[in-house]
Simulated assay, not measured.
Amino acid sequence: MKVPLSGRLFTFGLITCWYSSNIGVLLLNKYLLSNYGFRYPIFLTLCHMLACSLLSYIAISWLKVVPLQTAVGATTPFFTAVFAYLMTLKREGWLTYITLVPVVTGVMIASGGEPSFHLFGFLMCVGATAARALKTVLQGVLLSSEAEKLNSMNLLMYMAPVAVAFLLPAAIIMEEDVVGITIALARDDSKILWLLIFNSALAYFVNLTNFLVTKHTSALTLQVLGNAKGAVAVVISILIFRNPVSVTGMLGYTLTVIGVILYSEAKKRSK
């Protein structure tokens, strides 16, 4: 079925907003963690989730952007969608899976060609990617259920506090006295406070547009777009921070972009 032009433009706009905010957060994270020397990634992520919790609550409960959906009722689409998936076992076309090969291969080549490559960091990235993929699939079924579906703002409002509950003890244990250190830094240089606030607000828009892109495309499409976004972010990072890059790394990023283009064509044909 052919998608109307207005629908395609809307989806393209969502993807553009997601890319812009996502790459902005990545670059700010790199600046804070590497250039500025604020080496507390767990606390930084905690700030992101706190902002998501607060801004989602304000948008729903105060500004009434979307109706509030109760937590108990919100579990209905999850179980409905999961059971429906288990019974129907929906799969993508074989051509779609083939086009994912250059995407994954390109990322692996690019990682191996990274001048600051570290095996443990690479394994952690793989684990994070798998967890992100699971999150994407779950949010996809929650947002697209034929039953009592959640909207993206409500899903973010319920998800973010759960993330805070996990991140808070982790930050306290693994990044000792990070709150005191941050306060001391803010007293010496107020710029760090504004950077954290702006970075956290931007993270809210990343998560919100992430949910919206999932709703209007698919979980698999989101992951492929995420890989392409990584390649774009690397290029921008090189231009801004003058990071060294190898021929192998550039080959990997090029292969990833080619895979994304092939994937897009395969999805068009499947429709």
Rank of each mutant, 00 (worst) to 15 (best):
I183N: 08
V126I: 03
A163V: 10
A160P: 10
P77H: 01
A233V: 03
S34T: 12
P102A: 15
L251N: 04
V126K: 07
A170I: 06
A266H: 12
M174Q: 09
E265I: 11
S56H: 01
A184T: 06
M174E: 14
A71S: 11
I42S: 02
T214N: 03
K90S: 01
S34Q: 13
I181T: 13
M124K: 01
S144R: 15
K135Q: 08
K267W: 00
K229C: 03
T16D: 03
H216T: 03
K135I: 08
M1G: 12
E114V: 05
T136L: 11
L63Q: 04
G7R: 11
D189N: 06
L123A: 14
T217I: 07
L55H: 04
L142Q: 14
E176D: 10
L251Q: 15
I60L: 02
G24R: 03
G13S: 13
R187F: 08
L55R: 01
H48K: 03
A147Q: 13
A228L: 10
M87C: 05
T217C: 09
A110V: 01
F241T: 12
I181V: 11
G259W: 15
M174H: 11
V213L: 05
R132T: 15
F205T: 09
L195F: 15
F211A: 14
L225I: 11
E146A: 13
E265G: 03
A84H: 00
